[in-house]
Design a protein around this nucleic acid. Structure first.
Length: 567
RNA sequence: GUUCACGUAGCUCAGCUGGAUAGAGUGUUGCCCUCCGAAGGCAAAGGUCGCGAGUUCAAAUCUCGCCGUGAACACCA
């Protein structure tokens, strides 16, 4: 909003000066002590115009200063050697834009040029297996990205993509039958007991594992008895999974899984055959996805194993076929561990080759591995990695112990705080990086943390509660530097949000909301509003803080963080 | 081995579509609760941006080489 308006003025001036530039870039100042925004275009124009950057910048500044509308935008605009153009906004401009933002939904960010339907895949929990930290990371990042895209004006569809047809099911069925469990009485406690035990036994005994694999295969082929077991396991497990997601405030539009994908395998196979893509290699059916331009050899995608079984790539392909057919998405985003990058590369290329969907449809948001304190990844296979549920419980206990007053807090508020701590910690990091999981991270409440943001929000809320602003707007003044800094920060919303959308990076929003809070803290610490004689000033400030809090709240919501009643 | 990612303050990390004096948090050392909540504020100290070249008026940012760490490399997901 701010940037576009300034850019328009610059382009206007460029036209007058006969500068043949097609665009101009105004960026946030990196010297806030000198100006609010800056333009470094003079350096680029120097070659084109065969003049020195200072000359060009000086002329641009002069042209802008001579405009009749100068003061409605700028307080000061000046050229600083060797050719920077430093821009300081006028109070009028700042307040005009803020008022406009305050009147609009979503602070007036424009609708996307093209409204896209975007599919997101960020669940991947396995039925009958407990969720662990990795699942939480996927869920939090995915949910946040979904909310961001949706806020930007796109249509989003989230699919949990359940792992409900794998070997673990065979193992659990075997264990249930062995114990002679009555199907209708099976609870999550039974699954929590049977799965780890069976998993351990299968590791010891390859024969037992083979038997379980056989059960799994028969289930996939339609064995009715096993199917009943499977349904029950799925039902019980999903209840549990749903509860955890609910705790995390993560939701999905679709609860499909691998078992649903199996229905679409024949269709998928036909599509591949039609394009003559399937070929036999070492007994397996594969798709050659290599390209001559590859720097590194990309192995073929294995569609069907030599023993006739299907695997991960198969169900992923089949799932895509189904999604394209039913929903015609413009984009499909996968939020998974970075280590799966090659797998997705193969799948995406296959889709492109088979005409299922163009390569550009897909994006793999590969987040860094969740590592332990030793820097090694948490193991997901042998049940060694701690259960998510117990970690959340642990975090809550630590929180209660941290502050006396927390003992009187409602369960709901405590849960919100736990969520805020771990989500802010996760989302304020760039998701591409590895993530060292440290239980102390789950209880960090000071500094750049979720609780700090919530604390600021609640304090502001308390301050403005007692001031009736009625229909009062932003006003036309700015009273001091704390005031000005906060207003300027709020103006950045659109820039920051667009960055977050384009990069699918919630961390930009986390950093931004933190910056807002720091400035808001400084503001109310230094500008006491209680008993202020200047009523206009008091209302101006109350309006500003109201807008600030609205923004904090919406940003938090995009980070999947709620606001407690107190803390 | 090949490919990719990463290396910034004691620690955890921002910054990377090139711009001016490289920023936060934490930890360390001080100060600030008769004022709207101290889960807060203010200040100080802390840096060869892994190393070396190159491109450029300008490099933490782009290119190349080296060193270090990690990941992936067809019938697991």
């Amino acid at each position: 909003m701010v940037v576009e308006q300034i850019e328009t003025i610059f382009m206007d001036v460029f036209a007058k000066m006969n500068i043949g530039a097609e665009s101009v870039r105004i960026i946030l100042s990196n010297r806030k002590d000198l100006c609010d925004y800056q333009c470094d275009e003079a350096f680029k124009l120097a070659k084109l115009l065969h003049k020195s950057p200072v000359e060009i910048a000086t002329e641009i500044c002069k042209q802008i200063q001579e405009r009749t509308d100068f003061s409605s935008y700028f307080k000061k605009i000046e050229c600083v050697p060797p050719g920077f153009i430093n821009i300081t906004l006028s109070e009028e401009f700042i307040n005009r834009v803020l008022e406009n933002m305050s009147e609009k939904e979503r602070f007036g960010i424009p609708e996307p040029a093209k409204k896209e339907t975007i599919f997101l895949d960020y669940g991947g929990p396995n039925v009958a297996k407990p969720l662990h930290v990795g699942h939480m990371r996927t869920a939090i990042i995915g949910e946040s990205v979904k909310r961001i895209l949706s806020y930007a004006g796109h249509k989003t569809i989230a699919d949990v993509h359940l792992g409900d047809f794998g070997l673990q099911i065979g193992e659990v069925i075997y264990g249930m039958k062995e114990e002679n469990l009555a199907l209708e009485d099976v609870t999550i406690a039974d699954l929590d007991r049977i799965y780890p035990a069976m998993n351990a036994r299968c590791k010891e005994s390859p024969e037992l594992k083979e038997t379980c694999a056989e059960i799994t295969k028969e289930l996939q082929d339609g064995n009715l008895e096993y199917r009943k077991y499977w349904q029950k396991i799925r039902e019980v497990s999903c209840q549990d999974i749903l509860e955890l997601y609910k705790y995390l405030d993560v939701s999905f539009d679709l609860w499909l899984g691998e078992s649903d994908a199996y229905l679409h395998i024949p269709k998928t196979e036909a599509l591949l055959k039609e394009k003559n893509l399937l070929q036999e290699s070492e007994g397996a059916m594969v798709v050659d996805v290599s390209k001559s331009t590859d720097k590194k050899e990309i192995p073929p995608l294995v569609f069907q194993k030599s023993n006739g079984a299907y695997l991960y790539a198969t169900t992923d392909l089949a799932t895509i076929v189904d999604r394209m057919e039913k929903y015609h998405p413009d984009k499909i985003l996968y939020v998974t561990d970075l280590r799966q990058a090659l797998h997705f590369e193969q799948v995406f290329r296959t889709c492109d080759l088979a005409g299922i969907a163009p390569y550009q449809t897909f994006e793999h948001l590969g987040y860094g591995t969740v590592n332990g304190l030793d820097g090694k990844p948490f193991k997901t296979r042998n049940g060694d990695s701690p259960k998510l549920q117990s970690l959340l419980k642990q975090a809550k206990d630590v929180l209660i112990a941290k502050k006396d007053s927390n003992q009187n807090r409602s369960e709901e508020d405590l849960d919100i705080l736990v969520n805020a701590i771990l989500k802010f910690a996760d989302l304020s990091n760039n998701w591409e990086r590895d993530y060292i999981f440290d239980i102390s991270k789950f209880s960090e409440v000071v500094g750049k943390t979720g609780p700090y943001i919530l604390y600021t929000y609640l304090r502001i809320d308390k301050i403005i509660q007692n001031i009736d602003i009625g229909t009062h707007k932003i006003g036309n003044r700015i009273y001091n530097s704390y005031d000005r800094d906060l207003r300027l920060k709020l103006l950045e919303f659109e820039i920051v949000f667009q960055n977050a959308v384009e990069s699918r990076m919630p961390s930009y929003l986390a950093d931004y909301v933190y910056d807002i809070c720091v400035l808001a803290n400084a503001f109310y610490q230094n500008n006491h509003m209680q008993g202020l004689e200047d009523v206009i000033k008091q209302k101006d400030w109350a309006f500003l803080l109201t807008l600030t809090n609205r923004m904090i709240k919406e940003l938090l919501s995009l980070l999947v963080i709620k606001i407690p009643t107190g803390m």
